[in-house]
Design a protein around this nucleic acid. Structure first.
Lengths: 355, 355
DNA sequence: TTGTATGCGTTATCAG
DNA sequence: CTGATAACGCATACAA
């Protein structure tokens, strides 16, 4: 026995299906007697309202905004920057009243992706170059797309952060302190990427990583860079271990591309018997609070994470309303802490063993 | 000019619509020549694949799991317990490959709610009694529902925490330390609830709040309870201010229903010129790390937040596969910190001014 | 392997 | 205010 449909309800109530429909949608005046009849019939048949799938096909709207987060859905919640941004996005979408559908990029077999999700619009977060293919694929439809910190191609509004400038600013701070031997601990270079040194042959497909790398290199063109597998304290630790055990002179400063990475870097430096900032200065990026740094205060760039989300929400709402949305560029702010200090040459060179 | 549909593609390619459909779904073998023709036609017409809305109507599945979070979507990300739980849920759903649709309960005018969202299943988080109506409404359809820490009625599997027992356990710890004048700082009593004292007339419609309240009263039947507007440090502060300025003897211990609340309580106690735990012992609940407590370590109950999410994901997957899912009860673990200590009678009674 | 026919459950539209 | 009609765009059973 099938579920009751609106047609069943209409038949039971002795009215047309279209009439029963408006009783539920309320889009047209209905006489009290008809409404009562329809509601009674629905009650009796156990009909609890229109099927959302059919309704969204007919209306062309699902009330869903897809949020595509690289391969990070499972770990996104561990990243404070992402959660704050999502919070802002939810706030920005509240007016339009759309729900957020969390999607991941890889779409490897998994059901929902940017190509298959019934969303009215998409917000891409830190979109990798790999996403470009999917974006092109759905560009045929007229679905609004907004990108947060990434480039999804011409005509797609972007919510940008001044990643390059901001990273350059904090790098200049470090240089002004006298540091010359500087290493970089970067975010992942690609979706699901492996940790490792970044060389000329490394393809950096994640925009944030790319831009912050450029900013650091604007100031320290020769700085060696080690990419973490993701933004976490543990990965920051691992990156710093690699950096400190590399050949050549030990760096006197390490610039991390996120506060989480920086927290790990600090621990690794300390575990190596070195002091922060006396032996090694460390900087972060994001301006979130990270456990395990105390009693130090991280020198970092504070980014407007919630504002990013709100701006994206506003842009989506505008496009859904038929208006054009322009790209927006938000800026970060330098925050001085006590994890950076004047350069002091290494007392003892660290000999690396090529065991 | 309309968007191209699969019918247009089929016509252009000179094949039947069903054949073109199969080319995209891959559910049936297709000759290379037809596939090429269809793909070429699609390319030319700018057809980028089946419309997800139509596909989900036809197949009866949308690949979406709705997560209903009280009225908390906008603030859910600020609550560490919730984000950890969502992380576990995303992990639990990964196998099934469904996307998570974040929904809020209030459904006041806003488009997507449990009644209107095209989801294959729903996970209710901390569901208030108000949600029961919506649950009953969609029970008519055969959509799987799982409830995390709440009761959505008979036949709906629950992922339960031992809230009452756990709260009683930590309360006994406090009583064993000699405390008799104890006050409670509770989570909200209802969705969008106002802060204030809980008396016999107060309807506590949120299950978590209710159960933890019962647990505390099992040990301290007469303890006064002040409900916060939400789980946050600021609200915990406000609750403690209210508690400390109330008539009667100052409590020597305050039991908070969350670690965030406890952090605020501690600050308020200290701002009142009192010491934790010497003058006032404070306990939390959740076992998450909270900023601002250091150098103290909270005495609290550690709940398996991620496990809750994973269990819910597994239950949903099972029900979607047609199997029955049973309710699961997870347990919390006592963690001793240094925010509780032996009772010491108040040195100076706090006189309340009824100005 | 391909084509034919038939709904999936709704809701705009427009005439009465 | 109500009813008939016509899509919305697709995927499956079955026959050829």
């Amino acid at each position: 026995m099938r579920r009751a449909t609106i047609a069943d309800v209409a038949r039971e109530a002795g009215v047309a299906a279209s009439t029963a429909s408006v009783v539920f949608s309320g889009k047209t005046p209905v006489s009290t007697s008809t409404r009562t009849k329809v509601l009674a019939a629905a009650e009796q048949l156990g009909y609890t309202g229109p099927d959302p799938r059919a309704a969204s096909l007919r209306r062309g709207r699902s009330g869903i905004v897809g949020v595509v987060m690289g391969d990070r859905v499972r770990t996104a919640f561990r990243d404070p920057v992402t959660t704050v941004m999502l919070d802002g996005l939810a706030e920005g979408m509240a007016e339009h009243g759309a729900g957020l559908l969390l999607l991941r990029d890889d779409s490897a077999g998994g059901e929902p992706s940017i190509r298959t999700a019934p969303a009215d619009a998409f917000v891409l977060v830190g979109c990798s170059t790999g996403l470009r293919a999917s974006v092109d694929a759905i560009r045929g439809r007229d679905i609004p797309i907004v990108v947060i910190e990434g480039d999804a191609g011409p005509g797609i509004p972007q919510i940008l952060l001044d990643n390059r400038d901001a990273q350059a600013e904090i790098a200049r701070h470090v240089r002004a302190l006298g540091h010359r031997d500087v290493a970089l601990a970067t975010l992942p270079v690609s979706t699901g990427g492996q940790p490792g040194w970044i060389d000329a042959a490394t393809a950096v497909s994640i925009a944030v990583t790319h831009d912050r790398l450029l900013g650091a290199r604007d100031v320290f063109p020769a700085a060696a860079a080690y990419a973490a597998a993701r933004s976490s304290i543990d990965e920051g630790y691992a990156a710093a271990v690699a950096i400190l055990s590399a050949d050549g002179p030990r760096p006197t400063a390490i610039l991390a591309q996120s506060d989480l990475l920086a927290a790990g870097v600090i621990r690794a430096v300390q575990d190596a018997g070195l002091a922060v900032p006396d032996d090694v200065s460390v900087t972060g990026f994001d301006g979130v609070w990270v456990d395990g740094v105390a009693p130090l205060t991280l020198t970092t760039m504070v980014q407007p994470a919630a504002a990013k989300g709100r701006a994206a929400g506003a842009a989506v709402a505008a496009m859904l309303a038929g208006d054009a949305a322009a790209s927006i560029r938000l800026t970060s702010e330098f925050r001085s802490g006590n994890t950076t200090g004047p350069m002091r040459p290494p007392a003892t060179p660290v000999a690396s063993s090529s065991a």
